[in-house]
Amino acid sequence: MNADTRLYTDRTASTVTTRDGVQLYYKDWGPKDGPVVTFSHGWPLNSDSWEAQMLFLAGQGFRVVAHDRRGHGRSSQPWDGNDMDHYADDLAAVIEALDLRDATLVGFSTGGGEVARYIGRHGTARVKKAVLVSAVPPLMLRTDDNPGGLPLEVFDGLRKGSIDNRSQLYLDIASGPFFGYNRPGATANAGLIQSFWVQGIQGGHKNTFDSIAAFSATDFREDLAKFDVPTLVVHGDDDQIVPIDLAGKASAALVSGAELIVYAGGPHGITDTHKDRLNQDLLAFLRK
């Protein structure tokens, strides 16, 4: 079998190489015989953004796996393939290379789109449950058949910010709407702001730029219709990045039998601001 058509994993370096030659860095924590939970991160972050949930669940006996999306973190920075189909196929590459089965797929923000597209493209043969946290599905962009979406100008603004000074863009997002630090009375946490900035700036410029279209303009409605496993949707009702009515509530309505948990006052970055509650909600869902 030719090297460009096979999937393989280098456990010494904790990488999986995809069929198109992209190296994906991954973490594999907890007991190897524990129930499997995978984590797909948001834009422009990497798998470090899941550390609170991974450390907690690994301590509860779960095998937790998370990779850095192509072009992000410690993974390769390919010029092409920075789109949701490739993201989903990369998740499949990790799952297949590690031979993960009966996995619960957890996706945050853009990672929620990755999970949805994975199920849409690869089915649920290896999937036991799914969790969407502050996730972008069904469709963020305003279109003729999605009139409640956000206008194109919002995402063009992100693209302009990326070109003008993406370092400042990431700092502004983290210092303001991502964690809700722009709300009256909010106390900003410098550590979380710096962590967001560091993760973002580690990503490739072209990759994170292209990803804006991937998370904003990809239509996941057909993918959500293919969900046939228990699904949990968690969303803050003060999410200024991915509004709950456009995303969390709409996804829960499209997935048959989905459970929706709303965090009152929760911002977009609830994996950090509400990590203790989220950890407990994930544990309860996993144990059902």
Results as ranks from 00 to 15, higher is better:
G203D: 02
L192P: 00
A190N: 06
Q199V: 01
P184G: 02
W197M: 05
D219K: 04
I212C: 03
H205C: 02
Q199S: 13
F215S: 09
A217T: 13
Q202R: 14
A217R: 15
G200Q: 03
I212G: 01
N182G: 13
G185T: 00
N189W: 04
A217P: 01
R183Q: 14
D219G: 03
G185C: 07
D210F: 10
W197H: 12
S216G: 00
T187C: 09
T218R: 10
D219W: 00
D219M: 05
S216N: 06
D223T: 11
Q199K: 12
W197E: 09
A186W: 04
Q199Y: 08
D223K: 02
T208D: 03
A188P: 10
G200N: 08
T187H: 13
Q199P: 05
A188F: 04
S195W: 05
G185H: 05
F215P: 04
F220D: 01
G204A: 10
N207A: 10
S211D: 15
I193P: 08
T187R: 13
A188Y: 00
A186Q: 07
F220G: 05
I212P: 03
N189D: 15
G191F: 02
A190Q: 10
A214I: 06
Q199E: 12
F196A: 05
A213V: 14
V198E: 13
D223I: 04
T218V: 08
Q202M: 14
D210G: 09
W197D: 07
G191E: 11
N189Q: 09
L192F: 09
D219F: 03
S195R: 11
H205I: 15
G185F: 08
E222T: 14
A217Y: 08
F215E: 00
G203N: 04
I193M: 06
K206H: 15
T218S: 13
Q202K: 12
Q199C: 06
F196R: 07
Q202D: 04
R183I: 02
R183N: 13
A186R: 07
K206Y: 12
S216T: 04
D210Y: 12
G191P: 00
A188T: 04
A217C: 10
S195A: 11
G191M: 02
D219P: 01
L192H: 10
A213W: 09
W197V: 15
S216L: 11
G185Q: 03
A214Y: 03
E222I: 08
T208N: 14
N189T: 03
T208H: 09
F196K: 07
A217V: 03
Q202P: 00
D223E: 07
L192M: 08
Q194I: 02
D223V: 08
K206L: 15
K206D: 13
A190E: 12
G185R: 05
S211K: 01
I212V: 14
S216F: 02
I201G: 10
S216D: 06
G203I: 06
P184F: 02
I201C: 07
A217Q: 14
S195G: 06
A214V: 08
F215D: 01
N207G: 10
H205D: 14
S195P: 00
L192R: 11
Q202Y: 00
N207T: 07
G200C: 02
T187W: 03
D223Q: 07
A214S: 15
Q194Y: 11
A190G: 08
